[in-house]
């Protein structure tokens, strides 16, 4: 987008936001490339995989030992490598965000938790004195978050979105909710593209400076137009569903039964989780 049009239009921020959301979703779709590659986790039934990841996340949350967290993380990295997920892509995706969010949450604890201080540095009216128990707690917290987020990211990277949704039914998420989630994911992408197209169409016809009120009117008009189109489309989608026998209750296809390899993977993950919890208690 040229700077000139941005200055004239003043809707560049909205256009950028929409383009950003669209490209994020496209990236998310693009990452299904990993979910479709031939790796260890990709071959595991999504229901087994969901169970495996949930028990390990539970173990990481119950553990109070940094050594155990590091051990779990090493296992996750091994699983990612066995699943052909690129190492740097996986590590960056997890650790670029965690220091920002988890770090901000635990910073106060480093200074307020009582106990011996690592050092005591007077800085004018305040004293910078991080406590050793506070630091250990912060590192443990970040390690737990890191392990849990790594597991979630690995699950998403190695499982197609549709399979992930279906596996939610095994933990008793209602079918109607799963269908609504799937349809929301399906159509939000379509409408974001539509909104981007509308902004591009406006940009291509913009030949003079527009006033603030005109721009606000344009944005509200665009929102109204999208709402109208979404209502029309929802009516058409309902008609298409009714035309194929939908009467309000959802029936879904039951996937094949889990195989021996899936059960073994699940049992293995449970064993890892149990060992992690016991080891954590022993080390404590």
């Amino acid at each position: 987008m040229s700077g000139r049009v941005e200055r004239d239009g003043h809707v560049g921020w909205l256009e950028h936001t929409l383009a950003g959301i669209t490209s994020s979703i496209e990236r998310a779709v693009f990452t299904e490339e990993h979910a479709r590659s031939r790796g260890w986790l990709q071959a595991v039934d999504p229901r087994a995989k969901l169970g495996m990841f949930l028990v390990v996340i539970l173990a990481a949350s119950l553990s109070s030992s940094i050594v155990v967290e590091v051990g779990l993380y090493a296992i996750i990295l091994g699983a990612a490598a066995a699943s052909r997920v690129p190492f740097d892509f996986f590590v960056k995706r997890v650790w670029l965000g965690i220091p920002l969010f988890a770090g901000i949450v635990v910073i106060p604890a480093i200074f307020f938790v009582p106990g011996p201080r690592l050092f005591d540095l007077p800085l004018g009216p305040i004293q910078l004195a991080p406590s050793i128990p506070g630091l250990i707690g912060a590192v443990l917290f970040i390690a737990r978050v890191g392990v849990s987020v790594s597991l979630a990211v690995l699950l998403v990277l190695t499982t197609p979105w549709a399979d992930l949704l279906k596996s939610l039914q095994t933990i008793r998420v209602p079918q109607l909710f799963v269908l609504i989630l799937a349809m929301a994911y399906r159509y939000i992408f379509l409408f974001l593209h539509l909104a981007n197209g509308m902004f591009e169409a406006r940009k291509s016809r913009l030949v003079a400076r527009t006033s603030g009120s005109e721009q606000r009117r344009y944005i509200s008009g665009t929102i109204g137009n999208l709402v109208n189109r979404s209502i029309k489309m929802s009516n058409d989608v309902y008609a298409a569903m009714a035309a194929r026998g939908f009467t309000g209750s959802i029936r879904s296809f039951q996937a094949d039964r889990m195989g021996m390899a899936d059960w073994l993977s699940l049992v293995g993950a449970v064993a890892v989780a149990v060992v992690a919890v016991i080891a954590s208690r022993s080390l404590a």
């Binding site: 949704l165 269908l179 058409d236 989608v237 008609a239 298409a240 569903m241 194929r244 029936r251």
Partner: peptide, 27 residues
């Protein structure tokens, strides 16, 4: 059976298989 003009209306599920299976499942 009716095939709509806009396939985006007809293909509302997460995968092609789910869309193809939708009718038989509802029956």
């Amino acid at each position: 059976g009716l095939v709509f003009q806009d396939p985006d209306v007809q293909l509302f599920s997460a995968t092609v298989f789910d869309d193809v299976a939708f009718g038989p499942l509802q029956l």
